[in-house]
Amino acid sequence: MTTLSGTERKNITPGTAVSIVLKQDQRSGTLTHGIVKDILTKSAVHTHGIKVRLETGEVGRVKHIEAD
């Protein structure tokens, strides 16, 4: 299993399994796992991670992309 960086928009598509940091978890760094529903960041690259909405409705920045 390979882990891709979550800072590039091209690595993320709806349906991708990812680990994100929610706004309230930024200090602790707690990761939340889920499937991408929507990509919210418009730019191609973001240093803190691309912001996404998971299928559960949670919003956060991608830290890791779970690739097979």
Rank of each mutant, 00 (worst) to 15 (best):
I12Q: 00
I20S: 06
H33Q: 15
G57W: 09
T47W: 08
Q24Y: 06
K23R: 14
L40Q: 06
S43P: 00
H48C: 01
D38I: 11
G34M: 13
G29Q: 12
T41D: 02
L31C: 03
I35Q: 13
T32E: 08
V45C: 09
E55M: 15
Q26Y: 09
K37P: 02
S19R: 14
I12Y: 02
L22R: 11
G34C: 14
A17R: 14
K23F: 03
R53I: 11
K51G: 01
V18N: 04
G15R: 14
L31M: 11
V36S: 02
N11E: 00
H33I: 11
G15E: 08
S43G: 02
G29D: 07
K42D: 01
E55C: 11
R27E: 13
D38H: 15
T13S: 04
E58Q: 15
H48M: 02
S43R: 14
H48L: 12
V21G: 01
G57H: 10
S28P: 05
T41Q: 06
T56W: 11
L40C: 10
D25R: 10
G60F: 06
E58W: 13
G49L: 03
I12A: 00
R53S: 12
L31Q: 12
H46P: 00
L31Y: 07
N11G: 01
L40T: 10
L40P: 07
D38K: 15
K23D: 07
L22F: 02
T41Y: 03
I12M: 00
R61I: 03
T13D: 00
G60M: 08
T13M: 06
T47L: 13
T16L: 04
S43V: 08
E55T: 15
P14G: 06
S28L: 12
Q26H: 09
A44K: 15
L31N: 06
D38E: 15
I12G: 01
R9G: 04
T56M: 12
E58G: 03
K42L: 03
Q24R: 14
H46I: 04
L54N: 13
A17D: 08
V21H: 03
I39D: 05
K23N: 09
D25Q: 06
K10A: 05
I35S: 14
L54D: 03
G60H: 07
K51F: 00
H48K: 14
L22E: 05
S19A: 13
L31H: 09
T30D: 07
T30M: 13
K10D: 06
D38G: 08
V52G: 03
R9A: 02
T56H: 14
L22H: 05
A17H: 12
V59Q: 14
I20G: 03
T47C: 07
T47M: 08
G15Q: 08
V36G: 07
R27V: 12
N11W: 01
S28F: 07
G29A: 11
K51W: 04
V18Q: 03
K10Y: 05
V21I: 11
T13L: 04
L31V: 10
R61S: 02
D38W: 06
G57M: 11
R53M: 15
T56P: 10
A17P: 00
